[in-house]
């Protein structure tokens, strides 16, 4: 039996960067040993009444479906309230986002695209589902769907309209294609009528979809 016949994640240039640390490179034999070892451990803990299988299934479910923090909302609110921070964010998003304690990227750079009255930005990953997860958590299902990935490139205004976002004809729409190297985050426009709000209150207004660029931030 060959030990090299496992499909690696390597070479998929559009997604996570290659790391042997993250890919399965075990032989089938080793994998069988580990499967049996873990099953014995689980059986023992269940027999002793230390864990029950329902709790194990629930734990997996919670973490596999964990929506993650919307750290991006705090980044946006800071940029709206602190012009110096906003400038740092536009100059070097990776560093400015790390300032707020959000990291976890594995080699990807963050780029922030600022919406203005003249320009509206929207983010896609045309080939797979590259996504700025340290700031936005897990991608929504529609972000990974072929329909969105293909159509937003050719008909961004139509896609935005489907999300209820109508833009005046003179607004330029820019579509950003994410990759292994670059993850985009949209900095939405701060809505009118929010002048008196605190940074914390502003963060509550910022929805995930606005940071992907398919919607705008609405005043509360």
């Amino acid at each position: 039996m060959s030990h090299d016949d496992h499909a690696h994640d390597h070479g998929h240039a559009h997604d996570a960067p290659p790391s042997p640390y993250h890919s399965s490179q075990r032989s089938e034999e080793r994998n069988r040993e580990l499967t049996e070892k873990v099953a014995r451990l689980e059986d023992l803990l269940v027999a002793k009444g230390i864990v029950d299988r329902g709790a194990l299934d629930r734990a997996v479910d919670i973490y596999e479906n964990d929506l993650g923090p919307m750290n991006g909302a705090r980044v946006v609110a800071r940029a709206w309230t602190d012009p110096a921070y906003k400038q740092r964010l536009l100059d070097n998003a990776t560093a400015a986002i790390a300032e707020l304690g959000y990291g976890g990227l594995q080699g990807e750079h963050m780029v922030v695209c600022e919406n203005t009255p003249e320009i509206h930005n929207v983010v896609v990953c045309t080939l797979c589902s590259c996504y700025p997860w340290p700031v936005l958590g897990l991608p929504p299902t529609w972000y990974k769907d072929y329909a969105y990935r293909s159509r937003v490139v050719v008909d961004p205004r139509g896609v935005l309209a489907d999300f209820g976002t109508e833009l005046p004809d003179d607004v330029e729409v820019r579509v950003w294609d994410s990759s292994a190297e670059v993850r985009y985050l949209v900095l939405p426009e701060r809505p009118a009528g929010t002048e008196g709000m605190s940074e914390e209150q502003l963060a509550e207004l910022v929805e995930r979809d606005a940071m992907i660029g398919v919607t705008k931030v609405e005043p509360a």
Binding site: V38, A39, E42, L56, A59, V60, Y63
Partner: peptide
């Protein structure tokens, strides 16, 4: 399963 055991415990 190994992930779940550590988290659950």
């Amino acid at each position: 399963r190994a992930f779940a055991m550590a988290v659950s415990l």
